[in-house]
Simulated scan of single mutants.
Amino acid sequence: MTVEGPTAPSAARGDGDGADETLRRVFERLLAAHGPQGWWPAETPFEVMLGAILTQNTAWTNVEKALGHLAARIPLTPEAVLAVPEAELAALLRPVGYFNVKAARLRAFCSALLAAGGEAALAAEDTASLRRRLLAMHGVGPETADDILLYAFARPVFVVDAYTRRLFGRLGLLDGGEGYEVIRALFEQALGADTALFNEYHALIVRHAKDICRARRPLCADCLLRDACPSAA
């Protein structure tokens, strides 16, 4: 199976059928190379929410350390998080960096979650309403909101991150100046509303961008997409 080279970028930008075919071929090749990723690495939906907030501007390994510190101190529930003094919470979150800011964001999120009626109440909302509610919360931007929607609430929302921009920019499918919502719409319209596919695709993009399509010194010789990648040439 191959990803079309010269025609893929224009098809992805302009033609719905071309975008569908190209993006699915990339997915299939990434899946064949890396296998299922089993994301998100968390025990509960609330832990997914915590991780989505803490992973802003930091590596996931740091988030795992912070969550480990937090779990050793308290049960991972919004009530328990709010019961921890903010200074102590910040100290527990030190591995993620910006720990004072993130402690305040976690507390604000937990307060908003409980005020809304908890996880069950949010789960009963339709996707568009829930996304608006999340985006209205302090410190929650589009990527964080969509992480929560996809991985905690199993909604068919495609997560766009820096890895997505890097990989598909190098493949010529993105110009580089597109806004978050434009890229999200491109993937969702091309692939259809498929929660399982979005889950696996996002995880595979992260895996490939970390291991192969790195920000510095990408391993183009080892990349399964190099035959369709203008940047590799």
Score class of each variant (00 low, 15 high):
residue 59 A to W: 02
residue 65 K to Y: 02
residue 29 R to E: 09
residue 119 E to P: 09
residue 173 L to K: 03
residue 68 G to F: 06
residue 72 A to W: 03
residue 157 V to N: 03
residue 120 A to Q: 14
residue 168 F to M: 07
residue 27 F to G: 07
residue 119 E to M: 15
residue 185 A to V: 00
residue 66 A to L: 07
residue 147 D to H: 07
residue 129 S to Y: 00
residue 197 L to M: 08
residue 95 P to Y: 05
residue 57 N to F: 04
residue 171 L to Q: 01
residue 37 Q to R: 05
residue 73 R to G: 02
residue 134 L to K: 06
residue 209 A to Q: 05
residue 125 E to T: 01
residue 160 V to L: 05
residue 39 W to P: 10
residue 84 V to Q: 04
residue 46 F to Y: 08
residue 105 R to Q: 12
residue 47 E to D: 14
residue 36 P to S: 05
residue 16 G to M: 14
residue 229 C to Y: 00
residue 216 R to C: 12
residue 110 C to T: 11
residue 60 W to G: 03
residue 26 V to Y: 00
residue 67 L to Q: 13
residue 112 A to G: 12
residue 225 L to F: 08
residue 79 E to D: 11
residue 116 A to H: 01
residue 180 Y to T: 10
residue 42 A to D: 11
residue 100 N to W: 10
residue 220 C to W: 03
residue 123 A to S: 15
residue 114 L to Y: 09
residue 138 H to P: 06
residue 192 G to H: 11
residue 128 A to V: 08
residue 173 L to A: 08
residue 177 G to C: 13
residue 59 A to N: 10
residue 181 E to T: 05
residue 121 A to F: 09
residue 114 L to E: 15
residue 90 A to N: 12
residue 63 V to M: 06
residue 103 A to Q: 07
residue 215 A to L: 07
residue 124 A to W: 00
residue 17 D to E: 15
residue 122 L to H: 06
residue 107 R to D: 09
residue 120 A to E: 15
residue 211 D to P: 00
residue 47 E to K: 14
residue 215 A to K: 13
residue 178 E to Q: 14
residue 100 N to R: 14
residue 92 L to G: 13
residue 170 R to M: 07
residue 53 I to N: 02
residue 205 I to N: 03
residue 108 A to K: 02
residue 201 Y to F: 15
residue 228 A to Y: 04
residue 82 L to R: 10
residue 186 L to P: 05
residue 203 A to D: 09
residue 45 P to E: 08
residue 202 H to C: 11
residue 222 D to K: 08
residue 13 R to I: 01
residue 171 L to H: 01
residue 221 A to L: 07
residue 143 E to G: 10
residue 178 E to I: 13
residue 216 R to G: 06
residue 146 D to G: 12
residue 132 R to V: 05
residue 14 G to K: 03
residue 154 A to C: 07
residue 110 C to N: 06
residue 117 G to Y: 13
residue 42 A to R: 06
residue 79 E to I: 00
residue 41 P to I: 09
residue 72 A to K: 06
residue 98 Y to C: 05
residue 186 L to A: 10
residue 164 T to W: 01
residue 115 A to N: 04
residue 174 L to M: 12
residue 179 G to P: 14
residue 222 D to E: 15
residue 192 G to T: 11
residue 142 P to G: 00
residue 13 R to N: 02
residue 114 L to T: 14
residue 232 A to T: 00
residue 81 V to L: 08
residue 193 A to I: 12
residue 176 G to K: 08
residue 218 P to R: 03
residue 7 T to Q: 02
residue 50 L to Q: 13
residue 40 W to C: 05
residue 48 V to L: 13
residue 184 R to A: 14
residue 99 F to R: 06
residue 190 A to K: 03
residue 41 P to S: 08
residue 3 V to A: 04
residue 209 A to F: 05
residue 224 L to A: 14
residue 36 P to R: 00
residue 65 K to G: 04
residue 208 H to G: 08
residue 231 S to H: 10
residue 135 L to P: 11
residue 83 A to N: 10
residue 174 L to R: 09
residue 51 G to V: 11
residue 38 G to C: 04
residue 59 A to M: 04
residue 114 L to N: 12
residue 69 H to I: 00
residue 19 A to Y: 02
residue 84 V to C: 08
residue 69 H to Y: 09
residue 182 V to D: 14
residue 61 T to I: 03
residue 184 R to D: 08
residue 129 S to H: 00
residue 139 G to Y: 13
residue 27 F to T: 06
residue 151 Y to A: 04
